[in-house]
Computed example of a mutant assay.
Amino acid sequence: MPTTVKGVISRAKGEPVELVDIVIPDPGPGEAVVDVQACGVCHTDYHYQQGGINDEFPFLLGHEAAGRVSAVGEGVTEVAVGDFVILNWRAVCGECRACRRGRPWYCFATHNAKQRMTLTDGTELTPALGIGAFAEKTLVAAGQCTRVDERAGAEAAGLLGCGVMAGLGAAINTGGVGRGDSVAVIGLGGVGMAAVVGSHLAGAAKIIGIDLDPRKREKGRSMGATHTIDPADGDVVEAVRALTDGNGADVVIDAVGRPETYEQAFYARDLAGTVVLVGVPTPEMRIELPLLDVFGRGGSLKSSWYGDCLPSRDFPMLIDLYLQGRLDLDAFVSETIGLGDVEEAFATMKRGDVLRSVVTL
């Protein structure tokens, strides 16, 4: 039987979110229902509310989540009832040309649940990133569930579902940061901070955190940055070069996603260095670079999709590192809140007061 639960929706562009009753259908073939235990408040949810993703209102917000599987549909083999899982928004298909070439982290045909959750009047909801986890339960494709060690708390584990994985993966998977490398990270929000942590995990010798906010620079140092730069103090490129023997960093990660920060990243890297764009730009943004500089500096210009992660591979590994005390996911959790506190959490996030507010249920 369909279940009625509480969930947080965005009904129209720019309007405050609402806590309402939503209907969760029984899972169909290849689907699963998950009892949500915790869900991080991500900038992407705010972008949905502001109409920055698309206009398919009303949205069921929330996507950075962990919980326990409570029902599965026909043919589901990935998970079983009772499994503790992290939800992901890129369930790989296993059949597209990227998957067939052995690169499933680039899957070009990721999928979500086929059925829609609804309001009690039957209005279909669009789940944020195909998840919709600011709710007591949510319906997803079974491939969006990754089973992990249940000793990990849901508040910390759920963050791997989006922002922390995006930043860690941008450093380790996309950027290929290795032992002894120098890394510069532009923007020390949740994703940028995770890139700092990922660079530290990978053994980088020098990690430079760049942000206007002194609180974020201080937090960056506590999470692995060896140096920090305040862009208000002068030329960021020259500051990075001054910290890298005049050469620039081996890897520069743009966790902001603006033309000016990308240009800084491009010129702050060493010759044959790597630029990774993980901050999400808006559709109207444009960048202009001298083509001779693109050729002459060599190296790689990369974009990082979800940290180029493969959830089935990366989530359990990172949870193991967390349980070993080698990855401090708890440091990303600034506060825990209830389902009714999401609107205030957006305001807190915009002020830069938190790395992550986490809804707990």
Rank of each mutant, 00 (worst) to 15 (best):
G279D: 08
W89N: 15
S357G: 08
P214K: 01
D254E: 00
T274V: 06
R326W: 00
P16H: 09
D353P: 05
V240S: 01
V191N: 06
G167R: 10
A65R: 03
E64D: 09
K216L: 05
C42T: 04
M285C: 04
R351P: 05
A152C: 08
G161A: 05
A141I: 06
A272W: 11
A268L: 07
A66F: 08
V359T: 09
R217L: 04
G192N: 07
G161Y: 02
G122E: 06
F57P: 11
R258G: 01
L139E: 05
K6P: 04
V177K: 09
H43N: 10
E284P: 00
L327S: 05
F134L: 10
R297W: 12
D308W: 05
R326L: 11
C93H: 12
L61V: 06
M285F: 13
K216C: 05
H47G: 00
P311M: 06
V33M: 11
G180P: 03
D45G: 15
L201S: 03
D270M: 08
G40T: 01
I287R: 10
V280W: 12
T146P: 13
G14L: 00
H63G: 15
G67H: 13
R68L: 01
A12H: 12
N88D: 12
T348G: 13
A242I: 04
M317D: 15
I253V: 09
L243S: 10
G130E: 12
G298F: 06
R269Q: 10
C309H: 12
G167N: 11
A345T: 06
V252P: 02
A38W: 11
L212R: 14
Q264N: 11
E288Q: 14
E18S: 03
Q50V: 06
F59I: 07
Y267A: 02
C162K: 12
G62F: 10
P16I: 03
G167E: 10
A12C: 00
W105I: 00
T77E: 15
T244G: 03
M1V: 01
Q144L: 02
L168H: 11
V256A: 01
D308R: 05
I172S: 06
T44M: 03
G28N: 05
G192E: 04
